[in-house]
Design a binder for these strands. Structure first.
Lengths: 147, 147
DNA sequence: GAAAGTTGACATTCATAGGTATCAACATTT
DNA sequence: AAATGTTGATACCTATGAATGTCAACTTTC
C-alpha cells in the first residue's frame, strides 16, 4: 500500500475526528450535509474519516475562520472547479450536467445518471481529492486555460 | 453614442445611487474599499455612478443577501476569473502578476506596472465589466477550457 | 449488552459580518 | 453661499451564520 492509499484509509469514527479537529460531531455532519465533505461510510452506514479527510476539513475551517468565506461562498467556489476537464466528459454529457451548468453546489453533490461520472466514485475523483483549497482551484483554472 | 456607452455614463452622485439601491452612502464606499466596485470619479475626486454600476451593485447585493456569500467570498470568486485569457497577457507578465498568482482579491484591485494591463483602465476592462455574477464567471471558465 | 453510532427535529448560544451613525476638517459642485 | 461631496476614525446596532446541545427512536460496533 502506498502513501496516498494510507492517507485515505478510513480510520477515525466521527467522535475521534471531531476531537482531532476541535469541533463538535454536529458540525462534521453539517459540513457533510452542505456538501463540503464526503467521508467514508462503513457497511453499517457509519461515518469513518481518513487522514485526508481531516486535512480537507482543516482546510475548510481555515477558509471559514481565517479567510472569512461563508459556507455558501465555499460551495460556490467548489462549483467553479472545471471538473469537466478533469474527467474529460463528452459534450453530450456536459449539455445535460447540472455541475457543468450550475454555480451553486460542488459537482460531487449531484447524481450523474448516464454520464462519464455515473460509475465513478466522487470520493476517489481528483476533482474532489485535489481541490480543497482556493489555491488548488485557481491552479486548475490556470492549468486548463489555453489548451 | 451607443447603448453600452449610455449605460456606462456616470450620472448619479453617491447619495442618489444609495437611494436607488436602498442602502447607505457608507455601504457604497465600503464596497469600493473592498474592491468590489470601481465607480467613476469626477475631476474633483467625487464618485459618480452609471446605470451599469447600479446593476453591478444590485448583483453583488443578491450574492450577499440571497446567495449568502460573504464579501470575502465574493472577492475570492472574482479573483478566480481567468483575466489573463481575456487580456491575453504574456507569459512574462503572468509570472510576475499578483492577480494571476493570487486568489484573494479581484485583479482590478492591483497595480500592474510593466504589464499589458498597466495602460488599460480596469473600469473599461471586460474582466471587470462582464463578470459581476458567479454565472458570468463560470461561463468564462467554461469558455476558456479546452482551447 | 454497553458504548457509540445513525437521522431528524428543534432550540439555543456565540461571534461577527454587514450595515449604520456621527464626528472632524476639508474640497467640490451648482 | 449652501449643499453635497471627500477621507478617516470611531463607535455602535442587529441580523444571522456557524456551531452547539438535546431529545427520540433506532442501528451498529466492539
Amino acid at each position: 500500500m502506498n502513501l496516498s492509499e494510507i492517507k485515505d484509509k478510513p480510520i477515525y469514527p466521527i467522535r475521534t475526528a471531531a476531537e482531532l479537529l476541535g469541533i463538535s460531531v454536529h458540525t462534521l455532519r453539517m459540513y457533510e450535509r452542505e456538501g463540503l465533505i464526503l467521508p467514508h461510510k462503513t457497511g453499517g452506514n457509519q461515518r469513518s474519516y481518513s487522514q485526508d479527510d481531516i486535512e480537507r476539513i482543516e482546510c475548510i475551517r481555515r477558509a471559514i475562520n481565517e479567510s472569512k468565506i461563508s459556507i455558501n461562498g465555499i460551495k460556490t467556489i467548489y462549483s467553479l472547479i472545471p471538473c469537466w476537464e478533469v474527467v474529460q466528459c463528452s459534450d453530450e454529457d456536459r449539455r445535460n450536467c447540472k455541475a457543468y451548468l450550475g454555480h451553486t453546489k460542488p459537482c460531487w453533490t449531484y447524481n450523474h445518471p448516464n454520464t462519464t461520472c455515473e460509475n465513478r466514485d466522487c470520493r476517489e475523483c481528483e476533482v474532489y481529492t485535489n481541490h480543497s483549497s482556493c489555491d488548488q482551484v485557481k491552479e486548475l483554472i490556470r492549468k486548463i486555460s489555453g489548451n
